[in-house]
Amino acid sequence: MKHLGILAHSTEGAALSFLSFCQEGFQRLGEHDHPDVTLDYIPFGRSMPAWDTGDHDAVRKTLAVSVDRLARAGADFFICPDNTAHLALGRPGPALALPGLHIAEVVAEQAARDGRTRVGVLGTSYTMDGPLYPRALGSHGIAAEIPDPEDRRLINEIIFSELVNGIFTAESRAAYVEIIKRLAARGCDAVALVCTEIPLLIKPADSPLPTLDSTRLLSTAAYDVATGLRPFPTWYGGSPTTP
C-alpha cells in the first residue's frame, strides 16, 4: 500500500479528511487498519495575508514547503483537503515534490458518474468566484452554478467566522439550506460542498439537493490510490490537465 500525505491548509477540513481516510481503512481492511498517512500543517493564518491580497504565488510557495516535508516523511503522493488552496497549487511554478489528486477533478468525476447536468457550488468566495469548478465540471459537460452575490457573501462569512473555527450552528445550517433551495429553483440537480468544512454543517439529509462532499470524495479517492484501486496521480501542481 502507498503512503498518503495530507497537505492541511485549514483545521476542520484537514481533520475530517484524516478521519475519513482512516475510516475507509477500518471499513475495508478491518479494525484499526489503514494505509500509512502523514499530515503536515503550516498554520492557516500565515497564508491569509497573501490570500487577502490575491498573491496566490506566495501561497503556493508555502504549500510547497508542506509537500516537501511530506515527501521527506515518506509519503508517496498527497492530497490537499482545501478547495481554495487549489487556486494556488494550480499556479505555474516548480513541480511539487509529490504527485497529488486534484480535489475539483475528483468532485467533477463523481458528478459525471451521477449523471449531473448543473451543479451548484458552495465554498469560499475565492472558490465560488474562481475558475476551479467551472473548468473541472465543464470538462465533463456539466454547468457550474454559483449563488447570488449576497448569498455568496453570507456563505463566505460563515465559513471564516464559524466553520474553520469548529463552530456549527442551527442558524447557519438553515441559511445554507435556503441558499441550496434557491439553487434548486435555478435548475441545479446537485450541490457541491467545496469548502471542506461545509459537510460538517450540511449533512445529506439536511440538503434539498443531492450533495457532492468534496472532503469525503477526496479521502475515498486517496484510499483507492493507496490500495491500487485507482491509477496513481500524475499531477505535480499547475494546470490539472498537465503534470
Results as ranks from 00 to 15, higher is better:
182 R>S: 13
179 I>D: 02
144 A>M: 04
127 T>R: 01
128 M>F: 03
106 V>R: 08
180 I>R: 11
119 V>S: 07
183 L>N: 04
188 C>W: 11
185 A>G: 02
189 D>C: 03
163 L>F: 12
133 Y>A: 01
166 G>M: 08
136 A>H: 07
121 V>M: 08
116 R>L: 11
147 P>F: 08
125 S>A: 14
143 A>E: 15
188 C>D: 11
108 A>F: 06
129 D>R: 00
162 E>Q: 15
181 K>P: 00
151 D>K: 06
121 V>E: 07
131 P>H: 10
110 Q>W: 00
183 L>D: 08
136 A>I: 07
170 A>V: 12
141 G>D: 13
126 Y>P: 00
143 A>T: 14
131 P>G: 09
159 I>V: 14
151 D>H: 15
180 I>K: 10
156 N>T: 10
171 E>G: 08
159 I>A: 09
140 H>M: 07
142 I>K: 03
111 A>K: 06
124 T>K: 05
182 R>T: 09
169 T>S: 15
154 L>I: 14
141 G>P: 09
122 L>N: 01
115 G>M: 10
140 H>G: 06
186 R>A: 14
121 V>K: 08
129 D>H: 01
107 V>F: 02
107 V>W: 02
170 A>T: 14
150 E>M: 08
114 D>T: 00
143 A>Y: 04
105 E>F: 00
127 T>K: 00
122 L>G: 02
116 R>N: 12
120 G>V: 07
167 I>Q: 11
175 A>Q: 13
124 T>G: 03
106 V>L: 09
115 G>E: 11
145 E>S: 12
117 T>M: 11
128 M>C: 03
160 F>W: 13
130 G>I: 04
163 L>E: 10
